[in-house]
Amino acid sequence: MLKVGVNGFGHIGCLVTRAAFNSGKVDIVSINDSFIDLNYMVYMSQYDSTHGKLYGTVKAKNGNLVINGKSISIFQERDPTDIK
C-alpha cells in the first residue's frame, strides 16, 4: 500500500483523502495544513456540499484525525520541510 502525506486540507486535499479511503490502495499517514484546525478538518471530512456525507466515522482524538478507526497525524507547519 502506498503511504501518502497530504499537504493542504482545503477542498482538494479533503477530496484526495476521501478518495484514498474509498480506494483502499492508498494509506494517508499525515496531513499538514497551517490554516485549518483539527475540529474543522473533522467537519470537512464528514460533510461536503458537492460530494455528500462521508460514510464511516470521523473524529479528533489525541491531536490526530481518525477516519474509520485509522489515525492520521496532523501537522500545522508553514514549511513542509520542517516535518520530520
Rank of each mutant, 00 (worst) to 15 (best):
K3A: 11
G5M: 13
V6K: 14
V6A: 02
V6P: 04
V6H: 03
N7H: 13
N7W: 10
G8A: 08
G10K: 12
H11A: 14
I12M: 13
I12L: 15
C14K: 15
C14N: 13
L15P: 03
V16Y: 13
T17R: 07
A19E: 15
A20M: 11
A20P: 02
A20G: 05
A20D: 06
N22H: 09
G24P: 04
G24D: 02
K25Q: 08
V26G: 02
V26Q: 02
D27A: 08
D27I: 01
S30I: 00
S30T: 04
S30W: 12
N32V: 01
N32R: 05
N32F: 08
S34P: 14
F35D: 04
I36F: 09
I36T: 09
D37G: 01
D37C: 00
D37H: 06
L38A: 01
N39L: 04
Y40K: 15
Y40E: 12
M41T: 01
Y43H: 04
Y43G: 02
S45F: 02
Q46T: 08
Y47D: 07
D48G: 01
D48T: 03
S49A: 10
S49V: 10
H51I: 03
G52W: 14
L54T: 01
L54A: 03
Y55R: 12
G56R: 12
G56M: 02
G56P: 00
G56K: 03
T57H: 11
T57K: 14
K59H: 15
K59Y: 14
A60L: 07
A60C: 08
K61D: 12
K61N: 13
G63V: 07
N64T: 03
L65R: 10
L65Q: 00
V66T: 09
V66R: 01
N68A: 09
G69L: 11
K70E: 06
K70F: 05
S73D: 13
Q76M: 08
P80H: 12
P80M: 11
D82Y: 11
D82G: 04
K84L: 05
K84D: 10
